[in-house]
Amino acid sequence: MATITQPRTQTDTPAQVSSGSGLDATLRVVAYAVLVFVALLMFVPFAFSVATSLKTNQEAIRLSFSNMFWPSNPTFDAYRVAFEANVARWFFNSALVAAIWILGRALFDTMAGYAFARMQFPGRNLVFLLVISTMMIPGIVTIIPKFILLQEFGLLNTYGALTLPFLADAFGIFLMKQFFESIPVELEEAARIDGASRYRMFAQIILPNAMPAVTALAIFSFQGSWNAFLEPLIFISGSSPNLFTLPVGLANFRQAYYTEWPTLMAMSVITTVPLAVFFLIFQRYFVESSASSGIKG
């Protein structure tokens, strides 16, 4: 996002200090120790939730080192309860909603970001400032006017309410603007000589070249939609449980089972595992693309 004074390196290979140039053994050990410790910190809560999900209620609250990460009598009871809830449907809804957010933002944020980065038109700076300033209002206060609007449009209790208000966002526009400002204009200049219009230029040259940044945008959009809780809770009535997203479904589930840690943890595991698998398969893509894209300037 922020521009580094240093011009970017020509090569795209990550800068690394070669191991020959003095990464001494002690430092290496310390580095490993820190990394392993932090990785453990990251995994322990998840491992613990898996272990808890396999326990009985009684065992869950009587913790000891011997049963901390593996129950003495593993049971799948908690999973049976969890599966009886409509998790599959909630998962599907969350995935669908996330896909629509991603598509909308990938297109609309990218277009807007490109306009702000490359085009001169009346009102540009003012509009951009306005867009940026919306990041500073906590979302909760605007929920009432949004709700009333969605009601006017007849969109309450539809997928529209879960997606339409979120098809563009300030952070994404900001991200894309920074990205477009960082890529060389030579590409466009070549197209301009051919007499291409802005629209053709965008579709044929800009968009394909913006893929890394769009991926980063997609990841942030995914996080946003996956975590959205209050809006789906308010915009979808309890009479439409088939439209619940995961967080709402979980909250609903928690109302009934809030004292049963194994059941709650089983639910958490069920909702996290597909995500974890997806993440592990595509992790290189996830991590590398968000690292090597729009985030730098």
Binding site: M111, M119, F121, Y199
Partner: peptide
């Protein structure tokens, strides 16, 4: 002048 706003329009 025009294209800028066209690009902005959906957002």
């Amino acid at each position: 002048n025009v294209a800028g706003w066209v690009f902005l329009l959906p957002a």
